[in-house]
């Protein structure tokens, strides 16, 4: 039954009364791809996932899976496994019974169910908890149980709604790697919702960035990181995110706080722009933009400096051993290719 797992969203709109949770969403997911839906809270990620699963119907638009229009197909018949943001474990069943449930519904013989349940539980490290009820598990254990219930079935599409949000940092890294390996070995298409951009960057083959009900950019994590499409994405991706500074573009240069920086980005005429500068792309040099060090956040191997450039706050990442003192005045610059330009009116990339 497990087919390809190719997905297309065509002009999907979802209204809740007057409120548009999704405003014309379009994207395509290739078979076998690990696709992340990234965006801040309330941007429509879960809504998108629920429409794909068939739990909610879009107000308008088409959902295609493997070139078939499934917009009005019941969730039961879509061959999709999902990990809910709320786990949605069956409270009256033990962990083992929870994991076995989809297999029982698929009418698998008992002799095959037991080993499959064990195997799935072992993959997410809850095989010692099989006899417990969900109410007797910690949040992270419940989340892993939900994960096991989803992976035990070989569905063609695998939807995950923030499946690692409740795990501790170490377990999250481990499970993340395990998930990626699992998805590779099964060859299924995975759609992964997260608001953690680092998670999306490390896991996804490609990702769609949601902003208030719209997709603002689709691409590989590297692409999105290197060339954010809009001011909103630029301010969302990266840790710390890109500095966004009002400036003026004049003939191949940008003027920030009276200082000229060369840029490879071009725009037709002299105009006001917003300049994007990655904290990691800034360098200390002689004769650059003058800035006072307000605050130093030491992260161990690197440090993040909060700089005051004539009233504008700019953050900069520097390597250890190269850290100025608080209150010092330094001079910074950036390479021409590291300067991003955005239109302050449309908020789009120039």
């Amino acid at each position: 039954m497990s087919g390809q797992g190719q997905v297309s969203f065509r002009n999907i709109v979802k209204l809740h009364g007057q409120f548009a949770a999704l405003k014309n969403v379009n994207f395509d997911i290739k078979p076998g791809e690990f696709f992340a839906l990234l965006g801040p809270s309330g941007s429509g990620k879960s809504t998108t996932l629920r429409i794909l699963a068939g739990l909610d119907a879009p107000t308008t638009g088409r959902v295609m899976i493997d070139d078939k229009d499934v917009t009005s197909t019941d969730a039961r018949d879509r061959d999709i496994a999902m990990v809910f943001q709320s786990y949605a474990l069956y409270p009256h069943m033990t962990v083992a019974e929870n994991i076995a449930f989809p297999l029982e519904m698929a009418k698998l013989p008992k002799s095959e169910i037991a080993p499959a349940v064990k195997d799935a539980a072992r993959k997410v490290k809850i095989d010692h908890l099989l006899d417990r009820k969900p109410g007797q598990l910690s949040g992270g254990q419940q989340q892993r149980c939900a994960l096991a219930r989803a992976i035990v079935r070989k569905a063609r599409l695998f939807l995950l709604d923030e499946p690692l949000s409740n795990l501790d940092a170490k377990l999250r890294l481990e499970t993340r790697a395990e998930l990626k390996k699992l998805q590779r070995s099964l060859g299924v298409t995975a759609v992964y919702v997260t608001h953690d951009q680092e998670e999306a960057m490390t896991l996804a083959d490609r990702m769609a960035v949601f902003m208030s009900g719209e997709i603002q950019q689709v691409g590989t994590p590297a692409e999105v990181f290197a060339r954010p499409n809009s001011i909103d994405i630029a301010g969302f991706i990266g840790n710390p995110p890109m500095n966004l500074v009002p400036a003026r573009y004049v003939d191949g240069d940008v003027i920030i706080a009276g200082h000229r920086l060369k840029t490879t980005a071009t725009t037709a005429v002299e105009r006001d722009v917003v300049v994007g500068l990655r904290p990691g792309a800034l360098r200390m040099t002689e004769g650059g933009l003058g800035a006072r060090v307000d605050l130093i956040e030491d992260l161990g191997d690197t440090a993040v400096l909060d700089l005051d450039c004539a009233g504008t706050m700019i953050r900069m990442r520097v390597a250890d051993g190269n850290i100025p003192g608080e209150g010092d005045t330094i001079s910074i610059t950036a390479r021409p290719q590291d300067i991003h330009l955005f239109d302050p009116a449309t908020r789009m990339r120039l």
């Binding site: 739990l55 019941d74 999709i80 999902m82 809910f84 069956y90 519904m105 219930r149």
Partner: peptide
């Protein structure tokens, strides 16, 4: 909770199975 019924639908339980296996217990 409503979400367990959604989970059951995705787990391919029929309306009757949802009643027997989830609602009734």
């Amino acid at each position: 909770p409503e979400d367990i019924y959604e989970a059951a639908r995705l787990d391919r339980a029929s309306a009757w199975q949802r009643f027997r296996r989830i609602t009734l217990p």
